[in-house]
Simulated assay, not measured.
Amino acid sequence: MKNLKMSIAAMLLLTISFTNAQEKEKMNHGEMEMDHSKMKMGDAKTEVILTDYFMLKDALVGDDTKKAAQAGTKLVASLKSFDKSSYTKDQQKELTDIIEDATEHSEHIAESAIDHQREHFKILSKDITDMIAITGSKSTLYQQFCPMYDKGSAWLSTSEEIRNPYYGSSMLKCGKVQKTIQ
């Protein structure tokens, strides 16, 4: 009887161990799938960068130099914390170049008057658009274009409604949706 109890206990332990191993394998497989889908749809770090970028855009739309400078500072931090490790070597190299350039422009925005902020925002917008082409985004974005500012300038928005960051209140609705990014 003692041997039978020991055998049953041993079988239970083996069953529990095997079940735990199966659950762990399922979890690891699920995490791998999640990482794969993240690459297609944009990851959390990309979304943080976009949030900071849109905060900056909105500050420029509102002609608010101080808020634009604060958003530029936040964007610098978001860009510097971006994790490129889940991308291919070529993508990592491209992302490194984009992030370095975007960081430099964000730093200038954090330290400049509004006219100079808008000049840097033009190039920053190109950098962020290039980044999204690699990382993707969870949201539908609209690339908008103003033909008047500096021989034509684009920016990204979460809305189809035109709110021009290059002219702010003086030409708020100047521009058009150039492309939808999904």
Rank of each mutant, 00 (worst) to 15 (best):
S78G: 14
D90M: 12
L79N: 02
G136R: 03
Q143H: 07
M11V: 15
D43L: 08
D43F: 08
K122F: 07
K84A: 06
K176W: 01
K84G: 02
Q143L: 15
A154I: 09
D64F: 04
K176C: 01
L4T: 11
N28M: 13
V177A: 04
M11F: 12
Q92E: 07
G152S: 07
A10K: 13
M1I: 06
K126L: 13
D63G: 04
E25T: 11
T65W: 00
E25K: 13
D63M: 03
K80P: 01
I8M: 06
Y167A: 07
T96S: 15
M131K: 10
T15C: 15
S170A: 11
A133N: 15
K126P: 01
R163P: 02
I49N: 02
K24L: 15
K2C: 01
S17I: 13
G136N: 03
K89E: 15
M11H: 11
M131W: 06
Q22C: 07
S81N: 15
Q91E: 14
L50T: 05
M41V: 14
G42L: 02
G30Q: 15
T88V: 07
D101R: 15
S159E: 12
T15K: 05
T73D: 15
T19C: 11
T135C: 02
E100C: 05
H108I: 08
L4C: 06
F121E: 00
I114S: 06
T15W: 13
G42D: 02
I181Y: 01
S125F: 02
G72P: 04
S169F: 08
L124Y: 01
Y87I: 01
T135P: 01
I98C: 09
L95A: 06
Q70R: 09
K179I: 03
S157D: 09
Q22S: 09
T88M: 10
K67S: 08
G72H: 00
V76T: 13
P165I: 07
